[in-house]
């Protein structure tokens, strides 16, 4: 009988620390499935962020580095330039990639570093207690926008993927989501493409993944998925951006 389901070799057999309904566990798993399918586990080097996914290396069973908050793409640049034969990716949240690390993000992209970036956008800072993220929607309540994000005071949700798409060094950007099985399949495909691009030397590829944070959205897991589908995608439309 053909085996159609197995635990990915790249995923350690441990339980995660993520909240019920959080998207990180799913995104982690998709990455390990893709790494296994591409047969690159022994070549991959992952760079984990600071944020909820700070200990991603406890779940991934391949070489990994920690990076200071926002610096994942600088760290990845250092690794990849020294070891171009390895496959190097970063996994970063919205605060990490689009607030404290905006400089590193834009310039790694502009240099056209041959890297793959998995960008988890859940519109909030999770690990520190649900503060406003650069991608927090207008009127969205967080612990630092108790009356909802107000454009006059806190500016607008930052569309970093659209900004990066303007750069000639960037070869592929797609925004995907984890809110339904169909979208999850698309997410996996996009991740695979981002890694294949690197393997083929095509250049900087980024997958933005809209991901649920039921805890800090004040929702239970199912309504959290609905909120992505009905509200978040209006601000962050899905599809290939570049």
């Amino acid at each position: 009988m053909d085996k159609i389901y197995a635990h990915p070799k790249s995923l350690r057999d441990v339980s995660t620390h993520y909240c019920p309904g959080c998207g990180h566990g799913l995104a982690h798993r998709l990455i390990t499935e893709v790494v296994d399918e591409l047969g690159i586990r022994e070549k991959v080097i992952g760079v984990a962020p600071v944020g909820c996914a700070v200990v991603a290396y406890e779940y991934w069973d391949f070489d990994c580095s920690e990076a200071a908050h926002g610096r994942a793409l600088a760290v990845a640049t250092g690794i990849k330039r020294v070891r171009p034969e390895n496959i190097v990716f970063t996994y970063q949240g919205d605060g990490d990639l689009a607030a404290i690390g905006t400089n590193e993000t834009i310039h790694a992209a502009n240099r056209g570093e041959n890297l793959s970036v998995f960008f988890i956008n859940n519109a909030v800072y999770g690990m520190t207690g649900g503060q406003m993220a650069p991608t927090t929607l207008l009127n969205q309540k967080t612990s630092t926008t108790p009356d909802g994000r107000c454009a006059q005071l806190q500016g607008f949700p930052l569309k970093i993927s659209e900004m990066l798409a303007l750069l000639p060094g960037v070869k592929y950007i797609e925004r995907v989501s984890l809110h339904s099985p169909q979208e999850i399949i698309k997410t996996k495909k996009a991740m695979k493409k981002a890694l294949i691009n690197q393997m083929e030397g095509i250049g900087f590829s980024l997958v933005e993944i809209l991901s649920p944070c039921p805890t800090y959205w004040g929702l239970s897991p199912k309504p959290a998925l609905d909120w992505i589908k009905n509200t978040m995608v209006k601000e962050f439309p899905l599809g290939v951006i570049k």
């Binding site: 760290v75 990849k80 020294v82 400089n103």
Partner: peptide, 15 residues
């Protein structure tokens, strides 16, 4: 900040 963190990455990779 980027320069020192690139050094971090390169060193992590053994260089």
């Amino acid at each position: 900040t980027a320069a020192i963190n690139m050094v971090y990455g390169a060193s992590a990779a053994g260089a």
